Computed example of a mutant assay.
Amino acid sequence: MYHSIADIIRQSEEKSCPFWQIVLQADMEERGVSYETSFATMRHMYQAMKDADAGYDPTIHSASGMAGGAGEKLHVYNAKGANLCGGLVGQVMEKAIKMGESNACMHRIVAAPTAGSCGVIPAVFLVVEERLSLPEEKMVEAMFVSAGIGAVIAENASLAGASGGCQAEIGSASAMAAGGLAYLQGGSAEQIADAAAFALKNMLGLACDPVGGLVEVPCIKRNVAGAVNALTSAQLAMAGITSAIPVDEVIDAMRRIGNEMPSAIKETSLGGLATSPTAVRLTEK
């Protein structure tokens, strides 16, 4: 078992096996399942992400009316070639917002690591899989990398907006996606850790302030920010840039920041954007 990213890296070196296999082996031990079963379970989760992306319905809106259709608008914008971010980043933005909208509209998604942050990992992984022509097995391995990072964050900090703010949801998802992307690009265990550190550092202190208590505004668009942040963070690590603060210390800092946050910006909708004049009007409708 492991309790930190440093543990995973150490075990990876001692056993001469990749980062993702350490995470898979821990899953085998914890659930008492075979290698094949563990891998098949993760493959099923990745397929569910693909299905959720393919099943996006631009005509459906959430019950509140605050979510729906934005993914299609971005699709049209990208199709025109107007997105200055370029094709790859534009696609990632599009898939992230579509997944977030699907969650708000009660479609089937994969909590990664939460429902509110469900768009970050699939947005990055699905686009990169296509762009780099990667086999599905490689994508499943990257899912284990992401899961290992998420498990460490869950143990040492939090994945819940109610206890850690949105840094714990979108921030964690972004770190998980960044680490997985570094792996897909051939990164070492250290580069995976640096990618996760960069991504999480960029999200420290992010408030959880959902309008009307719904996982819609600003949650859906924050998935876009988390996905693009993951892309850039992985590129920093792959360029050989290292994080001045080790990822495990970044995770610890996130825990401390979350503990210091007032409850008004930890999913209670009693502060931040949730109490802006427009938010109040929207919730009164």
Rank of each mutant, 00 (worst) to 15 (best):
Y2C: 08
A6Q: 13
A6T: 15
E14H: 11
P18N: 03
V23R: 05
L24G: 00
Q25T: 14
D27I: 03
D27S: 10
E30F: 08
E30K: 06
V33C: 11
A40Q: 15
A48H: 13
K50A: 01
T59I: 15
A63N: 12
M66Q: 10
A67V: 14
A82N: 11
N83W: 00
N83P: 02
G86C: 06
G86L: 07
L88R: 09
V92E: 09
G100C: 06
S102V: 02
N103H: 09
A104D: 05
A104E: 08
C105D: 01
C105W: 01
A111I: 14
A115N: 15
C118D: 07
C118P: 07
G119D: 04
I121W: 05
F125Y: 15
L126H: 00
R131H: 08
E136K: 02
K138N: 02
A142K: 01
V145P: 01
A147P: 01
I149H: 07
G150R: 03
V152I: 11
E155Y: 08
S158K: 06
S158R: 03
A160Q: 13
C166L: 09
G171D: 13
M176P: 04
L181Y: 05
Y183I: 05
Q185H: 13
A193I: 07
A193T: 11
D194R: 02
F198G: 06
K201G: 03
M203N: 00
V211M: 04
V211P: 07
V215D: 02
C219D: 07
I220A: 12
A225W: 04
L231C: 10
T232I: 13
L236A: 07
G240T: 00
S243N: 13
E249R: 15
E249V: 12
V250M: 09
R256D: 12
G258D: 09
E260D: 08
E260V: 08
M261P: 06
A264Q: 15
A264E: 14
E267N: 12
S269W: 13
L273C: 12
T278P: 04
V280D: 13
T283D: 04
T283L: 12
